[in-house]
Design a binder for these strands. Structure first.
Lengths: 224, 224
DNA sequence: ATTCAGTCTGAATAGTTGTTCACTTCTTCA
DNA sequence: TGAAGAAGTGAACAACTATTCAGACTGAAT
């Protein structure tokens, strides 16, 4: 007498799993990683605490998967923006702007993914997240270098530094406060993008142009 | 019968206090903030766990004071380096280089002070630490702007971004690995300094010169 | 020498959450 | 329909450390 999972059950299981992940994501977006606790997440997902453990072996795994998921979404958004740009420099500008806008529109979540203290070990997935996004940026910088728009440089280190600059300036404890104001927000995004482009060697005048170009389509994102 | 603390006792109390702080600092330098636990710190300082609480009301206070102390030392080193420089641009370069070198020579401690997850709330002292150092950088940037060496800009935001770039590139999880090699280390310091200077608008050629100037005296520090 | 405020000790306590597991409920299949 | 395996439940448990506190000790004052 073999028990076989019927299609309906498989679907329900999958739905539950993503409901739990989704609840975790909501919690993180609302209150940072500190708010991602098993009991509250279980309540949000309409299951018992024990059930969470039928889907994730530990809290660390749950959070790791959350980080991976958010990071994957982010990476694809960056790729999309960069690929829509006309040339390598524009692509780099678009990538930077996309990161800035996304990070700003989900500050708590971004902080949680990136740097917030968590009581379990999630260094591996955080590392992977950073590596993916930094790697993507590095590729874009490299493309601009190969196109002759930028001086030769250690692109990996540069990409890492840019990420750090964006994060600290936008979600760090010293980040500007009144970023609810959309104008202030746009200015901030432009400023950090300009800073980032100049850092890798884009000439000032050209950088300004790229920033404006890159920021314009991103307005839609800011609105969302 | 009034009990009055004799000079000797006062000295002993002060010595104990700083022994505890010092033990905490050693622990943090060796194993990050995670290693700053009351019992081990007490052992290192040759006192009992309870005694720690006669000097610091809580672990949070102990760590906060540790952060403040390290931060104060760092700030004065930055000031010293900047003030020894011949002009505002050199001063900025010197400040950036000093931060980079210090952070690299005490990686675990720096990571602990800046960003490592801690189980108690130390946001206030971390904020103060960042504000002080970022403020100092902002002043240096501002001086260079006023001297006409840099374009006008949001100096506070720029300073914050530079700090983020330095930290992420040098002690973040993606930081280059083999920084034990002094040559690699010097190159890395030069690269990030160059990146930082270009970010705020120093022209590339001029930036290279400033980096070399600023890195040369810092060699002594690297050796230390 | 004696007293006692001040200091130190370290085992016991406490509070917090992730994790488990004996039991219930649901689903499959003969 | 009923037997058996899967999934779900939630109260109890476990582990980890910061913190406490009753009693021991130190040394200043008389």
């Amino acid at each position: 007498m073999v028990y076989r999972r019927t299609h309906q059950v498989v679907k329900r299981l999958a739905a539950r799993r993503s409901a739990i992940l989704s609840a975790a994501r909501d919690a993180a977006a609302a209150g940072g990683m500190a708010a991602v606790q098993i009991a509250p997440v279980a309540v949000r997902a309409n299951v018992a605490a024990g059930t969470v453990y039928r889907y994730f072996p530990s809290k660390a795994e749950l959070i790791s998967e959350l980080i991976t998921e958010v990071s994957r979404d982010e990476l694809s958004a960056i790729r999309r923006a960069a690929e829509a740009a006309p040339g390598p420099s524009s692509a780099l500008a678009a990538a930077v702007t996309t990161i800035a806008v996304h990070v700003l529109s989900q500050r708590k979540l971004a902080w949680g993914i990136l740097a917030e203290p968590v009581d379990v070990d999630v260094t591996a997935s955080r590392l992977a997240s950073r590596r993916d996004i930094s790697g993507e940026l590095a590729m874009r910088i490299d493309a601009a270098v190969r196109a002759g728009h930028l001086p030769a440089q250690d692109t990996a280190l540069a990409a890492t530094a840019l990420l750090g600059a964006l994060h600290e300036a936008l979600v760090g404890p010293l980040a500007p406060s009144n970023l609810e104001d959309p104008i202030k927000l746009r200015d901030t995004v432009q400023t950090v993008t300009l800073l980032a482009l100049r850092a890798v060697g884009v000439m000032d005048a050209r950088a300004r142009g790229l920033v404006v170009q890159a920021t314009t389509p991103a307005k839609a994102l800011v609105g969302a």
